[in-house]
Amino acid sequence: MKAMSPELASWLRGRTDDSVTVKRLHGDVSGRLFWRVFTGNGTHVLMDSGKIPVWPWIDIHELLRANGFRVPAIREIDTRRGWVLQEDLGSRRLLDVDDGQYMKLLDEASDIIVAMQRRLDGRTCADSIAGRRSFTPAFFMAELENTLETLFFRLLGVPMNELLELQREMRTLCESIDPSSVFVHRDFHSSNLMVVDGRLVMVDWQDARFGPPAYDIVSLVRDSYRDPGHVWEDRARKFTLAKGNMNMFQIARTACQRSLKATGTFSFHYRKTGDTRYLGYIPRTLRYLADYARICPQLDGLVRKTYRTLDKYHGEIDLRDFRSANIPEVRSR
């Protein structure tokens, strides 16, 4: 575990006091580092963005705060070195609450998505990096190319001719996703929603951009970390009614791309770190695909090909039991 640099420790003491103590927190897959900071005046969270530019995080933090969304307050900041001392939101996430509270908070989370899409329009976001980035069919397909390479080719050993068949189906999917564009958090799921005094507070917004209206709601209700069960569809339908200009086909197509993309992301981080924890999220996410094909028959060909491929090939990992097991078999690397 990487220790705090002497320069960062000195910077922190200069903004607190010499008696300050810290405890390393789990970071995220981006490589940013976090510590809980204990002082005589309470606790804070220190973020070291390292080599990752911190200005998009700051820019979108200000955009959200200025438009009435709850985000952690910034206490001190060094933009050049990527250091941020911020409010401590605690350790309780939507991921961690009991089932009863989870279901209630899903409604609040959905309301936050609707509010973001209403308040953060193109004019409001014109001066923010979020307003100058957007999803496109090419961007969606680039994400799925990562899935084809890392999961299907490198981990499962799928031959090129069958990869090309999947690629054609995935390209058709990406070209069919709703071209409408609204503000999208991009990682709006149970691990990025903190529960503070019974209410939700967003974190990890630095990749926000404009994209399909369905994107954040499918991130929430088709979450790779926590499955709300059959009620996901009810929550998705309720969202389409709140929006007034959406349907479940849009939900299914967007969800299908995001779920396939997520399996590639988990595969990539497993290959990068060797941490099998990432593999544990893949079977659940793959099971979601069947629901999308049921809702939107256009997706049936892609889902069938995907499932046949998973049943047929196994290399470094074996996902043939993905329908019933959450931990794939892993062979020695």
Rank of each mutant, 00 (worst) to 15 (best):
residue 208 A to G: 01
residue 227 D to V: 02
residue 247 N to I: 01
residue 225 Y to R: 05
residue 228 P to A: 05
residue 232 W to Y: 11
residue 232 W to F: 05
residue 233 E to K: 07
residue 231 V to C: 15
residue 215 Y to P: 05
residue 218 V to R: 04
residue 196 V to H: 09
residue 237 R to Q: 02
residue 233 E to W: 15
residue 254 T to M: 15
residue 202 M to K: 02
residue 191 S to H: 13
residue 242 A to I: 00
residue 210 F to L: 15
residue 229 G to H: 03
residue 245 N to A: 12
residue 244 G to K: 10
residue 226 R to T: 11
residue 194 M to G: 13
residue 212 P to K: 06
residue 227 D to N: 11
residue 209 R to I: 14
residue 210 F to Q: 11
residue 234 D to I: 10
residue 203 V to P: 02
residue 223 D to C: 03
residue 202 M to D: 01
residue 256 C to L: 12
residue 242 A to R: 13
residue 257 Q to W: 05
residue 218 V to C: 02
residue 210 F to W: 13
residue 206 Q to T: 10
residue 214 A to H: 12
residue 225 Y to M: 07
residue 248 M to Y: 06
residue 247 N to F: 04
residue 191 S to M: 14
residue 228 P to K: 00
residue 233 E to M: 14
residue 216 D to L: 07
residue 248 M to G: 00
residue 190 S to T: 12
residue 252 A to V: 02
residue 254 T to N: 04
residue 206 Q to I: 05
residue 246 M to R: 01
residue 229 G to L: 12
residue 215 Y to D: 09
residue 250 Q to D: 13
residue 221 V to D: 02
residue 194 M to V: 11
residue 210 F to S: 03
residue 229 G to R: 11
residue 215 Y to N: 08
residue 194 M to P: 03
residue 248 M to W: 03
residue 241 L to N: 08
residue 213 P to Y: 14
residue 245 N to T: 15
residue 204 D to V: 14
residue 189 H to L: 04
residue 197 D to C: 01
residue 206 Q to C: 05
residue 188 F to V: 10
residue 231 V to R: 11
residue 213 P to F: 12
residue 203 V to I: 15
residue 249 F to A: 11
residue 252 A to Y: 00
residue 217 I to M: 00
residue 236 A to Y: 00
residue 199 R to W: 05
residue 245 N to F: 13
residue 189 H to N: 09
residue 224 S to Q: 04
residue 211 G to M: 07
residue 216 D to Y: 10
residue 241 L to M: 12
residue 239 F to G: 02
residue 214 A to L: 14
residue 212 P to Y: 00
residue 243 K to C: 07
residue 188 F to E: 04
residue 191 S to P: 03
residue 197 D to K: 14
residue 223 D to R: 07
residue 244 G to T: 12
residue 215 Y to K: 08
residue 201 V to W: 01
residue 252 A to R: 02
residue 207 D to T: 11
residue 204 D to Y: 14
residue 201 V to I: 10
residue 228 P to Y: 08
residue 189 H to M: 02
residue 248 M to I: 10
residue 248 M to L: 15
residue 229 G to M: 02
residue 222 R to M: 08
residue 254 T to K: 03
residue 190 S to N: 10
residue 214 A to Q: 12
residue 209 R to E: 08
residue 208 A to C: 11
residue 193 L to F: 12
residue 201 V to F: 05
residue 199 R to P: 08
